[in-house]
Design a protein around this nucleic acid. Structure first.
Lengths: 331, 331
DNA sequence: CTGTTAGCGCTTTCAA
DNA sequence: TTGAAAGCGCTAACAG
């Protein structure tokens, strides 16, 4: 037997008070056009007086639809995601959907658990920059409509931010400035974006005959960027491309701490343009598309939900280099 | 009739396949101690084989509890909130609760709508920095357990970040540096934090016989901070305290654009320490407590949910000034 | 247009 | 320790 809750006015009580059938009360709310305007008005008036609030759960059980989606991200606090979340939220709103937020803390296992927990109470899931294996992703996708952001799994609708082109531009830009030895400061190994950026940097560097190396970090944090600085400097590089802006800021801080001035002695490029114009000196970076990605992922999911076609849509968002104040001619 | 969904194995199918009653299957999952270990094992095996996944909605309808809470913030993308959200999320997780995120876009009406929409599908709500009127807040609180962050409404459990003390310190700090004319760059008028900070600055300034004035902005954005600069400079002030760090960065940018160097010619203080150490020059600011607030609000809500006591708890988190590189002696 | 009648999938007395 | 039966609050045929 359910716990008594305040505000527990049911459809039956309204029906009785209004002298109509329960189904009519239901229709007054969900299909008013099927009722005479008078009845609708009357029912709504009575309902209001009684303080009736439709029970979402009951409705969901009956219809099989709950109007909810889940959005799972690796780290809410990483500045790349809030704008994405915000945009997704806004788009979901347009469809009258509510959104569960999941934070996997950059951990595949936790992501898996969140997915299991949330799946059962949403109509669809958006997985942003998942750290999960393809197999697990596919397993979950077989149970619930899903769209991916920044993960390329065939058969699952996805939106990819092609930062490869932007990173290639960045590499070329550095080469043009006379840099011959550059390093890529790597992000999470399970990140598709990281793999994409790393290979774009590597390939372009090879094409331009630059010395190229990678400094690894597991989590894309300011700290990680900071700690990567000794390695970076140890490689005699004159420029670094970081996995993302947060790491780039860490690198900047580390360089400053060692008295290496940017961009005079060293050039730094970030990724995602997540910090926007907030920074001084303003970071040279690769444009992000987080807002567009967030919005698109939701509208894509809505399409999937409507057509029930598991289509293999794959939207690619382009990026480009934004030159600001942290890159310069090689020393 | 509900839509057929993939993975729709029900308790009845498991019961039949296992040769037991539906109630036993239910108990195998929710009250295994009431069944013989053998039966439990058997049932679970069969369930697993069939791919049974308990239906959260049905359970919720039956028990009246859904294990969900809602967290509503004015702007997900404002760097003050992501850490708060993350912390709240983490704490909710400890209680096996899922969290809906709502973004009111700094708009009271939208906040109201979100609240209505989300209330009906959660056990409780956390309202962070609401822009809504006390009346509406109370109305919603009467329908659903609620805890407030940074809003002081008596009768509703709340956690307040007392930035007043920090701002007072900041004002004193500026006075000690010889500043005689300071301005407060105001945030959203509906924000309790803004009112608190403004009056702390005003009162302290009065006590120290400083010239004090307020430059208003409606939304706490980088842009707003930037645009406030002409006014600020027009008042011949030599220092500014901004509603938050984002606005402070805007002010910084605006000053830089006008060739006013910080902190040599002008001092700037932010609030919330939301940007952390990411910035250069590093902002002098008032410490935030967003993580603690997020965590505390959830555990408070959980208590309310358990005891059903609407208690009038009011937790106050202290703040203090963090002097970094954007304040200096008056020119 | 409106009422009647079955459920949605699960939990929970109440008996056995 | 288990089963039978009665709902939770709502929607959706199916009649009229």
């Amino acid at each position: 037997m359910p716990v008594e809750r305040k505000g527990g006015v049911t459809i039956s009580q309204v029906a009785e008070a209004a002298g109509v059938a329960r189904s009519s009360v239901s229709r007054a709310y969900t299909k008013p056009h099927m009722l005479s305007p008078d009845t609708v008005e009357h029912i709504k008036a009575v309902a209001e007086r009684l303080g009736y609030i439709p029970n979402h759960t009951a409705r969901a059980l009956s219809t099989g639809r709950n109007g909810n989606i889940a959005l799972i991200v690796p780290d809410v606090a990483n500045p790349f995601f809030p704008p994405l979340i915000r945009a997704a939220q806004g788009e979901a709103d347009r469809y009258d959907f509510c959104v569960f937020l999941g934070n996997s803390e950059e951990d595949a296992e936790k992501e898996d658990k969140l997915l299991s927990r949330l799946s059962s109470q949403v109509e669809g899931v958006i997985l942003a920059s998942p750290r999960l294996s393809d197999e697990r992703i596919l397993a979950h996708a077989s149970l619930k409509p899903m769209v991916l952001i920044n993960r390329n799994v065939e058969g699952i609708p996805r939106v990819l931010i092609d930062s490869g082109t932007g990173v290639a531009q960045a590499t070329r830009h550095l080469a043009e400035q006379g840099h011959r030895r550059i390093v890529y400061v790597s992000g999470p190994s399970a990140s598709w974006s990281n793999r994409q950026r790393r290979s774009a940097a590597r390939n372009t560097a090879a094409k331009l005959s630059l010395e190229f190396s990678v400094v690894s970090a597991s989590v894309p944090s300011f700290e990680a960027g900071l700690q990567a600085v000794p390695s970076i400097l140890g490689r005699k590089a004159t420029a670094a491309i970081a996995f993302d802006d947060v790491m780039a800021q860490g690198v900047l801080a580390g360089l400053a701490a060692r008295g290496v001035s940017v961009p005079e002695e060293f050039s730094v490029v970030g990724c995602d343009d997540a910090l926007g114009p907030l920074m001084v000196p303003v970071l040279t970076t690769v444009s992000g598309q987080s807002v567009e990605a967030g919005k698109l992922s939701v509208s894509l999911l809505m399409q999937v939900l409507q057509s029930d076609a598991l289509g293999d849509a794959c939207y690619v968002l382009e990026t480009h280099l934004i030159v600001r104040s942290t890159t310069n001619a090689a020393p």
